[in-house]
Design a protein around this nucleic acid. Sequence first.
DNA 1: ATGGCTGTTATCCG
DNA 2: CCGGATAACAGCCA
Length: 281
Amino acid sequence: MPELPEVEVLRRHLDGVLRGRRVLSVDVLRPRLVRPTGVEALRELLVGMRVHAVGRRGKHLLIDGTDVNGNGGERRIVGHLGMTGRMFVDDGAAELPRHAAVVLGLDQGRFVFEDPRQFGRFHADLSAIDDMGPEPWDAAWTPNTLHQRISGSGRSIKELLLDQSVVAGVGNIYASEALWVAGIRPARAGRRLTSDECRRLWAAVREVLEAAIELGLRARPDFASGAGGLFYYGESGAGSGVEERFRVYDREGQLCSRCGGGIQRLVQGARSSFFCRGCQS
DNA sequence: ATGGCTGTTATCCG
DNA sequence: CCGGATAACAGCCA
């Protein structure tokens, strides 16, 4: 469940259940996911840490705390869900998921990070968030900075939106959705967008992400249960009655809700894009 | 049942 | 600088 909205909804949940907790033990079942930093560095950072907040940077989760045993130094763990990662806190009674990667023993309950495809990360290395672009709601991200950032590029605007140094947190689904809202075809070269199109796209990115966060909060997903924790907004609210209907994503061959045109799929950079032939230019 | 798809991203090569 | 291919991996679907 990995674009910015899903990560943000999870962040709020984890912040509520992890804040104030102490980490007593670290169990790494899949060391692969703890690279590039090794398991030892992770354990040193975590054991004895008290969580004071869970944050987010793009699609990365940040677990911040202080060392309560030693000098009270600040500590930060960076997690990424990849395509299929999950994180939850439970009481430790249930069996661990098959693909559990990192388990933290807490003073109350336990934290579990699991990821079937093992594309996720959980480590002490901060380099992943070092040269990331602005958050969509950052004052540093404006229609103008977007325009400047892409105006020299011949790459397609769809691929540019997926580039985390352009803006943080947009993934494959919401890139297509934002381009539909802005009325821009995904294959257009970045340098060929007008400043007005950049303004529309800038607003569309915020709008689409905001709406998805709202939806995710309303869905009140059950992060700890297997199927519920893996809910994806486009499918169903996992029984919550909340449903998101994408405007174009995964709707090849269907009709556009805005103009009645046909929705088409194309492949860019080995990923599917979806757009309406009628009202995106 | 085999192959083709999937929310991410790092890296390599031409 | 770019685009494209590949690779990490499991699961789902037709």
